Simulated scan of single mutants.
Amino acid sequence: MSIAAIPTIKLELALQSPWMANQVAITRNNRLFLGLPRYSAEFSTPSLARQAADGSLQPFPGNSWNTWKPGDDGREAFVYLNSVHVFNDETVWCVDQGSLSAGVFGEQYSKPAPGAQKIVQLDAKNGAILRILRFDDHILPPGAQLNDLRFHGSLMYVSDSGLGGIIVHDLENGKTIRRLSGLSVVKASDKAPPAMLAHVKGGTTFHPPNSDMIEITADGKWLYWAAPTGPLYRVETRILRDMTRSDAEVASQVEAVYDNNFSGGCAMDSEGNVYFSETVTHNITVWSPTGKTAVLVSDPRLVRPDGSFISQDRKLYIPVKQPVNTVTANGKSEQRFNIYSINLPRHLDGIDLGRAITGV
């Protein structure tokens, strides 16, 4: 299968952040939010930021939720945000893994304290905390790690990148189920490139997460997920939610649909196309449910691109985790992190590109 690139599509610099961002989300009114994980013990960072009218980035909400430090209670504060997303309700949903890298912060902070691992919903206008979801050991057994989430109606689908698994929570009745826990279809493959497997972070060998990226089609029929290593899997949501089926029976209905390159994040449009932020290639590659693939953009500035987001005006926003050294007016050297955007064309090498999925 050939992959064709369209050279006329441009990568635009949307904004710069003083903090490393791995997630971006935007409301219909163009309120832009960044997810800011604690990767470094050397550089302090808030966990969530919102872009102000003057273009500056401010911690959001502006209170103790963004001032957590190792040793503090993590129940009512952000510890390590791994996902930030905006859906049809125009609120901000955050996935807090509740723990830090053992290699960077020490083994004592590598396991979430009780109540620290959580999902938080905020008002996009005033930062009010609207909802906090925590799950018991049946849904989050030891070693489980909340990663990302998507909605269709009242149903929330969450990936577990620790043990591997899919969590389904119904906001209407409060019921939660855990599916496919630890099975091969939610595990990282062993095909990751040596350049990634040899990656050293905080003095420890990098181990790819398990089921990480997660997407749901606009009609709610298909749930997709992938570890960074791939492959991309899918299953019908009705089968996943059918509790008369065992996990093994559900797994037998799971399809491996695409052997993606190592990717830090992805997005899906209303046509069911998945946009992969490829870690090593500097590409954003589009996979179509027809099986066709095409490179949307290839640019050397895309070093370690991560969780992308499609806005209502059909722009793809891509945060890049590679720092850029800049010099201020007083001659001081500082690090900045770039967030890029692409105006999505209507068609890409025979693939019809869609609009944002809002979860309804």
Rank of each mutant, 00 (worst) to 15 (best):
E255D: 10
D259L: 06
V257K: 00
W222R: 06
Y224P: 01
V254I: 12
W222A: 09
E249C: 10
V257F: 10
D247S: 10
N261F: 14
E255V: 15
Y275M: 04
M243C: 07
G272I: 14
F262P: 00
Y275T: 03
E271T: 11
E255I: 11
R238W: 09
N261E: 11
R241W: 14
N260R: 08
A226M: 09
L232I: 08
R238K: 15
R234T: 04
P228W: 14
R234P: 02
L240E: 02
A267S: 13
D242C: 06
N273K: 08
Y275L: 03
G265F: 14
G272C: 09
T244K: 10
V274Y: 05
Y258C: 08
T229N: 12
Y258G: 00
G230C: 05
T244Q: 07
D247F: 15
E236W: 03
D269C: 14
D269L: 12
T229K: 09
K221S: 07
Y258R: 05
A226Y: 04
R238D: 08
A256F: 13
N260V: 12
A226K: 02
L240Y: 08
T237R: 04
V257L: 08
A256D: 04
V257Y: 01
P228L: 12
A267M: 04
C266K: 05
C266S: 15
R245Y: 13
Y258W: 15
N260T: 08
S263D: 07
L232T: 00
G264L: 15
G230Q: 01
T237C: 09
R234M: 11
V257P: 06
S270Q: 07
I239N: 01
M268N: 02
R241G: 00
R245P: 06
G265D: 05
G272Y: 05
K221C: 07
A248G: 05
A256K: 11
I239D: 03
V235L: 13
S270C: 05
W225F: 08
S270A: 12
A248K: 13
D259I: 04
D242M: 10
R245A: 14
V250P: 01
Y233G: 02
D259N: 01
V274A: 02
G230E: 09
A256L: 12
S252W: 10
E271S: 10
V274H: 06
A227M: 14
G265W: 14
E236Q: 09
W225I: 04
N260D: 02
S246G: 02
W225Q: 01
D242H: 00
M268F: 11
E249F: 15
M268P: 02
D247Y: 15
G230P: 05
S252F: 12
M268Q: 07
Y224I: 01
S252D: 08
C266M: 11
K221M: 11
T237V: 13
L232G: 00
G272V: 14
S246P: 05
A256E: 09
A256G: 03
I239C: 02
S263R: 03
R241Y: 09
A227T: 06
A226D: 03
R241F: 15
G264F: 14
D247K: 13
